[in-house]
C-alpha cells in the first residue's frame, strides 16, 4: 500500500502560469484599468463623504487630504430618520435573503435533479419575471398592500425584493446543485439516509459556500433597490428610499456621505464571499 500512497497526487499549489511579456503587460494594464473603473469613483465618493463641506468643492482634488474626519459622517447618521432607515434596510435585506434562499434553493434543486415537463419553459419563465416592468405593477401593488396591511412595512418591501432576487437564487442554486454529483445522495440513501437526511448531511454542507453567495446576491439586490421601496413605504423607508427623499434637499457632502454608506455594505459583503463567487463561476481562486 505504500506504493499507492506515494503516488497520491498532491494538491497543486505551485502551479505558475508563464505568459509572454507582451501578454502579461496587456493583462496587467487591463486589470489596472478595471480596478480604476471601480475604485476611482468610490474613492471620490469617499473623499466627498469625509472631506466635509469644503472638501467637496476643493479643486484640484488632493490624493490624500489632511483634513479628513468622521464628523460629516456622524452628522449624517444623526439626521433624523437615517438610523431608522438603515435598520429598515437591514431588516428588508435580511428577510429577502431568507425568503429567496427558502424559495429559490428548492426550485434550483428541482431544476437540477429532476427532469419534468416544461422544465426549459419554467427556466425561461423564471428569468422573464425580471423582464416585467415593476412600474406597471406599482399602483395595483400599493393598493393591494394597503388592503392587506403590508404597506409601509419592511416585510412588505422584502416580499417585492424577494421577487426580484428569486430568479438569481433559483438559477444560481440550480448550477450549484448540478455541481454536486447525484451519486453522493444515492450513496447516502443506500447507507441508511432518508431523502431529507441525505440532503441535510451531504448536499447542504457541500452547497453552503454557493448558498452563501446566493444570499449575498439577494442581500445586495434588496440593499440597492430603490423604486419598489419608495412606492411601498411612507415612514418606514429603507435607506435608499429615504436618502432619495431627503438628499435632494441636502448639502452636497451629505449626499456623498449617504452614497458612501450605501456602497460600503455591498462592497464588504462581496469582498467577504469573493472566494465562493469564483467557485460558483468555476474559476479557481487562490
Amino acid at each position: 500500500m505504500t506504493a499507492t500512497s506515494s503516488k497520491a497526487p498532491l494538491p497543486d499549489t505551485s502551479r505558475t502560469y508563464t505568459l509572454p511579456s507582451a501578454r502579461r503587460f496587456l493583462l496587467w494594464t487591463g486589470m489596472a484599468a478595471l480596478l480604476a473603473w471601480v475604485l476611482v469613483p468610490i474613492y471620490f465618493v469617499a473623499l466627498g463623504a469625509f472631506g466635509g463641506r469644503t472638501g467637496v468643492f476643493r479643486w484640484p482634488k488632493s490624493i490624500w487630504p489632511s483634513d479628513l474626519s468622521f464628523a460629516p459622517m456622524m452628522q449624517f447618521l444623526n439626521i433624523e430618520g437615517v438610523f431608522n432607515a438603515l435598520m429598515n434596510s437591514f431588516i428588508a435585506a435580511g428577510l429577502t435573503v431568507v425568503f429567496s434562499i427558502l424559495l429559490g434553493a428548492p426550485a434550483g434543486y428541482a431544476l437540477a435533479r429532476y427532469s419534468f415537463r416544461g422544465q426549459n419553459a419554467y427556466r425561461l419563465l423564471v428569468l422573464l419575471t425580471r423582464a416585467f416592468p415593476l412600474a406597471i405593477l406599482a399602483l395595483p401593488l400599493t393598493v393591494s398592500f394597503i388592503r392587506i396591511g403590508l404597506y409601509d412595512t419592511p416585510f412588505g418591501v422584502s416580499l417585492i425584493h424577494t421577487v426580484l432576487a428569486l430568479p438569481f437564487a433559483a438559477l444560481v442554486t440550480q448550477s450549484l446543485f448540478m455541481g454536486i454529483p447525484r451519486e453522493y445522495e444515492e450513496a447516502a440513501w443506500v447507507f441508511g439516509c432518508t431523502r431529507l437526511q441525505a440532503f441535510v448531511r451531504i448536499v447542504l454542507p457541500l452547497a453552503l459556500p454557493g448558498l452563501a453567495a446566493t444570499a449575498i446576491f439577494a442581500f445586495v439586490i434588496s440593499w440597492n433597490e430603490v423604486f419598489a421601496a419608495s412606492i411601498l413605504t411612507v415612514r418606514e423607508r429603507t435607506l435608499t428610499a429615504y436618502l432619495l427623499k431627503i438628499l435632494a434637499e441636502s448639502p452636497l457632502h451629505y449626499r456623498f456621505a449617504g452614497g458612501f454608506i450605501l456602497i460600503i455594505p455591498s462592497v464588504l459583503f462581496i469582498f467577504a464571499v469573493r472566494r465562493y463567487l469564483f467557485a460558483v463561476w468555476g474559476i479557481a481562486s487562490k
Partner: peptide
C-alpha cells in the same frame, strides 16, 4: 444492502 459506486461517491466533506 451496501453499494460501491463507479465514481466512488466518497463524501468530500
Amino acid at each position: 444492502l451496501a453499494m460501491v459506486f463507479q465514481n466512488y461517491a466518497v463524501f468530500p466533506h
